[in-house]
Amino acid sequence: MRQIFNALLKYKNTSLFLGLLFISLLIVNQRSFYHKSVFSKIGLGISSNFHGVSKGVSEYLNLRKTNVDLVKENNKLKILEIIYLQNQVLKQKTLDTFNFEVVSTKIIKNSFNKANNYLIINKGYEDGVTNDMGVISADGIIGIINQVRAHHSSVISILHQDIKVNVSFKKNGAYGTLSWPGIHPKRMTLDDISTINSVSVGDTIVTGGMSAYFPFGIPIGVVSKFVQPKMEGYYQIEVDLFSNLTQKEFAYVIKNKDLDEIKKLNNDVSN
């Protein structure tokens, strides 16, 4: 204690000066807005520097935790990358393994008011169109090619009493055969659906995979009416088409790459 007092007495001028200087600075800070702003700027600089240093220290001390977090993040990103790459491969694979080729075409002539209707399209064998290809529109199927010229082909419309298309229910995959009774251009009949399958009005009908002409799953229409037989057997189902075949302009020809193979197989089996 005595030493402290001695030291204070020894440096009494200096300590008095420093104390009074501190008081003066306080007074200056009070009296002048300009000086106040300068002081606060200096204070901000000092405190931000100090915080920068302490922040750096704490960051260094947290490096282990940060590394763990980064590794976790990397794992997540790696998984996403793998999924992304797989998707890319799958997409390419899907394109490669898709058995159908599509040729866009324009309908030149269309008929719908006869018992057996045909269409003419403006693509022929020079465009790669051959017999027995399916023709679809944006919202359903149109028919099957039966004659081919160099730049034109004729199409048997599904509004033809001889054509029968393999279709199935979208909800349960029950197979049946779609045909046109020859009355109304939007109304088709669906046969060969066994009564062991449940049917209700509004069920969606899509093309079935049994057909060599059309890929599986093209929406065709909905069930509008059905009659259940008294005994076990087959429903009598009426289907409304999605597409209005009286107003078609554009169509797509679908070429099944494996058509020859399937035909050969069919022949082998039947022989």
């Binding site: 001028n13 200096t14 008095l16 000066f17 009074l20 200087l21 008081i23 003066s24 600075l25 007074i27 200056v28 009296r31 002048s32 300009y34 000086h35």
Partner: peptide, 30 residues
């Protein structure tokens, strides 16, 4: 030192200064 502080303080009060005389006379006294 005390006199310098008081003198500067009074001068600043009388001349509407921020505190320049106070600190300068305090420093020169020291």
């Amino acid at each position: 030192i005390l006199i310098g502080f008081v003198m500067g303080f009074l001068l600043d009060l009388l001349s509407q200064g921020a505190g320049g005389h106070m600190i300068a006379s305090l420093a020169i006294a020291f």
